[in-house]
C-alpha cells in the first residue's frame, strides 16, 4: 500500500458506483428486506388481513417433517450435482488439455451446453428419460427394467441430478481448462525428469496447483445446485413424485406462488439466504486455508 490515492475527490468514485449500487439495492436489498419482513407476518393471499406473528413461521417450518425432508433432499442433490459435474469436467479438461488434433472443436462442443437454458435442457432430457417417449426410457422398459421416474422417487432424483450436472459441466470444464493451462510447463517437466508417472504427476503436482480453481468451483457449484436448478426440477419432475425431488428452493416457490402462503415462503427464503451466507463463510474461512495458492 504505497499509494492509496487515485481519486482525490471522494464524490467521483461514489458517483461511478451509483448505478451498480442502485441496481443492487432495487433488485437485491429491497426484495430481501421485504422477504425478511414478510417472514414475521401471516397474511391471506391478497394481503388484506395481515397479522404480526413473530417467529411462528420459522417454528412451524422446523417442526414440519416435510420441510426437513426437503432440506435433506437438497443436501443429497447438491452433493451429487457438485461431485458429478466437477469430476466429469476435470476429467474432460485433462483430456482436452493434451496436444490432439482438432482440440478446438472438442473444446467448443464441450462448452456448448452451457448456453442452453436449464428448462430447455430439461426438455432434452425428457426425450431421453421419459418412460413412453424417451429413447433410453423406452429401452430400459424393453429390457425389463421398471423405469418410471414419474412414480419412482429414486429414479426421479437420478434424472434431475444427471440433467443438472450435465448443464453445469461446461462451466466447470472451462475453468479447469484455464487452470490447467496456467500450470507452468517447467514444473511438470521437472517432475517428469524426476521419474514421476503421469498419474503421480497429476495427483502430486497438477491437482494441488488446481486447488484455487477447485475451491472457487466448489462454492459456485453448491450455490448453483441450491438456486440455479429450479428450471430443471420444474420442467422434469415438479418436485415429485411424492416430494422426492423437492429441494428447498422449489418448496419456497410452491408454498409462495402456488399455495399462496407468503409468510412461510418468506421464512423459507430467509433460511435459504442464511444457509448460503453461512456455507460461503465457512468455505472461505476454513477450506481456503488448505488451498495452495
Amino acid at each position: 500500500m504505497r499509494k492509496r490515492v487515485i481519486f482525490n475527490d471522494k464524490g467521483l468514485p461514489y458517483l461511478l458506483l451509483a448505478p451498480q449500487l442502485a441496481i443492487t439495492f432495487v433488485f437485491f436489498f429491497w426484495p430481501a428486506g421485504q422477504a425478511i419482513w414478510f417472514s414475521f407476518l401471516r397474511q391471506d393471499a391478497f394481503g388484506i388481513r395481515t397479522t404480526f406473528v413473530g417467529l411462528e413461521n420459522f417454528v412451524e417450518l422446523f417442526q414440519d417433517p416435510l420441510y426437513l425432508a426437503s432440506a435433506w433432499n437438497t443436501v443429497v442433490f447438491s452433493f451429487w450435482v457438485t461431485l458429478v459435474s466437477m469430476a466429469v469436467a476435470l476429467g474432460l479438461a485433462v483430456l482436452a488439455d493434451r496436444h490432439i488434433r482438432g482440440a478446438g472443436v472438442y473444446k467448443t462442443l464441450l462448452i456448448w451446453p452451457y448456453a442452453i437454458a436449464p428448462a430447455v435442457a430439461a426438455v432434452l432430457w425428457i426425450f431421453i428419460f421419459h418412460p413412453q417417449v424417451g429413447l433410453l426410457g423406452r429401452f430400459l422398459r424393453e429390457i425389463g427394467i421398471a423405469w418410471d421416474y414419474k412414480l419412482n422417487g429414486g429414479q426421479a432424483m437420478l434424472v434431475v441430478i444427471v440433467a443438472s450436472a450435465w448443464n453445469q459441466i461446461p462451466y466447470n470444464f472451462l475453468f479447469f481448462l484455464a487452470g490447467l493451462q496456467s500450470i507452468p510447463k517447467s514444473v511438470l517437466e521437472a517432475a517428469a525428469i524426476d521419474g514421476a508417472s503421469a498419474q503421480r504427476r497429476f495427483w502430486t503436482v497438477i491437482f494441488p496447483l488446481l486447488s484455487p480453481t477447485t475451491f472457487f468451483l466448489l462454492v459456485v457449484n453448491i450455490v448453483f445446485a441450491f438456486f440455479g436448478t429450479f428450471g430443471v426440477i420444474d420442467a422434469l419432475t415438479k418436485g415429485g413424485p411424492a416430494k422426492a425431488t423437492e429441494t428447498l428452493i422449489y418448496k419456497a416457490y410452491i408454498d409462495g406462488r402456488v399455495n399462496l402462503d407468503l409468510g412461510s415462503s418468506s421464512a423459507q427464503s430467509v433460511v435459504l439466504m442464511l444457509t448460503v451466507i453461512l456455507l460461503t463463510a465457512i468455505q472461505f474461512r476454513y477450506i481456503e486455508r488448505k488451498v495452495h495458492y
Binding site: G240, P241, A242, D261
Partner: peptide, 21 residues
C-alpha cells in the same frame, strides 16, 4: 381454502401408495 395444495397433497400420498411405500 388452499384447495390447490390439498389436491397436490392427495396426489403425493397416492404416489406413495402406487410406489408401494
Amino acid at each position: 381454502g388452499g384447495m390447490v395444495e390439498i389436491r397436490n397433497i392427495i396426489q403425493e400420498e397416492l404416489e406413495k401408495v402406487f410406489q408401494g411405500q
